[in-house]
Simulated scan of single mutants.
Amino acid sequence: METDCSTRHATAAETAAPAPLPSGTRLLHIGPHKTGTTSIQGALFAAKEAMAEHGVAFPAHSRHPMEAALAVCARPGMMGDTRPTEGHWQRLLDAVHASKKQTSVISSEFFADAPDDETIARVVDDLGRDRVHVLVTLRPLAKIMPSQWQQYVQNGLRMGYEDWLDHMLRKAPYEKPNPSFWRRHRHDRLVERWTRVVGAENVTVVVVDDRDRGGLMRTFESLLGLPDGLLTEVPDTANRSLTLAETEMLRKLNMEFRGNGLPDELYSKLVRNGAVMHMKNACRPTADDPRITTPTWALEAAAGIGGEMAERIGTMGVRILGDPALLSAVPSPGQDDPEQEAARIDPEVAAQALYGALVVAAEAPPAPPERPAVRTVHQTSSKELVRVLGHRVLKRLKGS
């Protein structure tokens, strides 16, 4: 992977508000992850009824049709969750086709995980090839990396941030421990894959400027022909990123979890959807909470890759909205290791996480009594006891 950090000429792009897409277009927003997807999905879902008054349908039955996108892209979903089925995709398709001649908008960052051209072609054909316009939102890699790392930790990753950066940026083929990262975030190749299928004239790339908080909302309004101000950000604490201390606490828990061979379903129920979810909702980070800090060498490498990607995308003939030079800018570095080492979890945060796990366990129906074990507790190793306990808790949670 090239990481040349030399300055490049910025790709030309449109800065004025874009003209609305033709009436009846099916706008497919494919993310990728950490590029404003949660905010725009929340805004679209909240404005669903208002958009309908202007001839724009939001056919998904929830804020984010994640299961549908995972199913059609043959992705397994989050660790321990039930694997999405074809039925999830068909349900979304039925809602899309029910919108008939209306303009409609479908948004899921998991479409960026489509593994090949055949999968992309199927998505486009199922939605209606002659009506699909693909929208890709991009942010600088330097801003994506810390957010994506902590998201991987929420899905069981045990690797520390600097070690993870080392693998993603320095250790070819840059696929361990998360092969999905560069499939999503080698943005030039992502745009190229979808352009091969739908044609450059049916792809719009938006470079998100974090300094303009409402910019992405206004871009969607313009493309969909909606009035200014119709889309507004909806606060969603359940989807906030974890702080450094919270992420480190969870990462240490992941190490114990894996080390004791506990079932993935238990992780999904008690950890991600119990402890972490309750912690996010109950605890609001402050300015004093240490943030996840990217070292200077990684910032420079990410900016170099961003410049390469912007240059390649500029040659593909797709429409580009925003300033591609943002993708290659090197942000000011924060403090490095000292801040990372100083992260300590607040007792209140730890208590809320534990409480969330206990609530999930307490709400599970009681399981029928089991036959007595052949061996006594004192005859069983502590590691095996933890594993057996995990399976018993999972059985209780399932109510079987």
Rank of each mutant, 00 (worst) to 15 (best):
D163H: 13
G229V: 10
G334Y: 01
R371Q: 14
A46S: 15
R170P: 00
E49W: 00
L262F: 05
A13S: 15
Q148D: 09
G314H: 10
T243I: 09
A46R: 04
N254E: 12
G199S: 07
I106M: 10
L230C: 12
A362K: 05
L93D: 00
T3L: 15
G160T: 14
L138D: 07
A367T: 13
L224H: 10
E339S: 12
P331D: 15
Q102F: 00
A71R: 02
Q41H: 02
K171C: 09
P177H: 03
A50S: 14
A329E: 11
I292M: 13
M316R: 14
G80L: 09
A52R: 08
R240T: 04
R91N: 00
G307I: 13
R129V: 04
V349K: 11
V206C: 08
R284I: 10
S99K: 07
K252I: 11
P179C: 01
V96Q: 00
V123M: 10
P365A: 06
R139T: 06
N254V: 06
T3V: 09
D116R: 00
V330N: 07
E265K: 13
V191D: 12
L244I: 06
T35D: 06
K383R: 07
D116L: 01
L326F: 04
R291D: 13
V124Q: 02
V96D: 00
E67Q: 03
L397E: 11
R272Y: 09
V123E: 02
K34W: 11
T219G: 05
G24I: 13
A351S: 14
E265N: 09
D116G: 04
L299T: 08
G160Q: 14
K101E: 15
K398R: 15
V132M: 03
E348C: 07
T85R: 12
Q151F: 05
R371I: 09
Q154A: 13
L385T: 13
G199A: 08
L169M: 15
K143I: 04
A43E: 03
H54R: 14
L231H: 03
A364F: 01
M79P: 02
S381C: 10
T3P: 03
L397I: 14
H54Y: 15
S6N: 13
L138F: 04
G356M: 03
R387V: 00
L21K: 06
Y267R: 03
L70N: 00
R392W: 06
L28G: 02
G229Y: 03
P235H: 11
A282E: 07
T296P: 00
R312G: 03
D289Q: 11
